[in-house]
Computed example of a mutant assay.
Amino acid sequence: MGLSLFAAVAALIGGTLLATMRVGPVPPLRWAGTAYVQLVRNTPLTVVFFFVVFVLPRLDIVFSYFAFAVLALSIYHAALVCEAVRAGINGVDVGQAEAARALGLTFRQNLRLVVLPQALRAVLQPLGSVISALIRNTSIAAAFGVQELTGVVQRLTTANPDAVVAVLLGGVVGYLILTLALAGGLAITERRLERTR
């Protein structure tokens, strides 16, 4: 659960920053954001994990496996968050941004105070889908030695060799609980936001 939480927060922050780069007025930042999204989104997550876990240590960048897993998951899902947030930004009425500019707001103030709050409200469900996928994708971290996942499974299967299927079903139930709790939380948040509109 800690892995999902840290990676989700990092992906949401990173993806929102990437989205602001992609819609911003500075061409090199737009190109960099676009290149990042196109490269990462079209790369399998296992390749991202492989690069982070095995290539970065060769470049003398050394963290725990847990930190590497958070990094890999957040790098990959930030690209997906970016596209969801960018779609929300593009969905905000152009007149809103123009009115904010007419009031003298800078691009940054306009984005932070006017555009992003509306965009994030509009893309709550797509962001929920991205985070739900992130939660499920934490299972890939087990193949790369993240002790939070592999340690528990190894202890349970060693203590109860005949209960391997039950342990795996327990994992499935755990993922179901997390993703269904996320979906329920998003539904409640969406209803509250509808009332405040």
Rank of each mutant, 00 (worst) to 15 (best):
A32Q: 08
T20W: 10
G33H: 02
T46D: 13
D93K: 13
Q96V: 14
Q147S: 15
L120A: 04
V53S: 09
V55N: 09
Q147P: 13
R22V: 02
L80S: 09
R41T: 02
L103N: 11
Y36M: 00
G88C: 08
F68Y: 14
P117N: 12
R136S: 15
V52C: 03
I89D: 14
G104Q: 07
F68M: 06
R30W: 01
V47F: 04
A119E: 06
F54I: 04
R136Y: 14
N110V: 11
V114H: 01
V26R: 11
V52H: 00
L105I: 07
A78M: 04
N137Y: 03
T106S: 14
E83C: 02
A142F: 04
A119P: 10
G91D: 03
L73I: 03
R112E: 14
Q38W: 09
R41E: 07
A67G: 05
V114Q: 03
R41Q: 12
A84G: 07
A32G: 04
R22A: 04
A122F: 12
L120G: 08
T138H: 04
L71A: 09
A69Y: 01
G95V: 05
Y36C: 03
V94A: 15
M21T: 06
F66E: 01
A99N: 05
P44Q: 09
A79Q: 02
A35Q: 09
A122L: 14
P25Q: 12
A119D: 07
A133R: 10
L134N: 00
R58N: 12
V81K: 06
H77N: 15
A19K: 10
P25F: 10
L18T: 06
D93P: 07
V37K: 12
V47M: 07
G104R: 04
A102G: 05
A99I: 04
A122E: 10
P28I: 00
V62H: 13
V115L: 12
A119R: 15
R121V: 01
L120Q: 08
P27L: 01
V55H: 09
T34Y: 12
A100D: 08
G91N: 09
I140F: 03
F68N: 10
Y36L: 02
R22S: 02
T106M: 07
A142K: 02
V115Q: 07
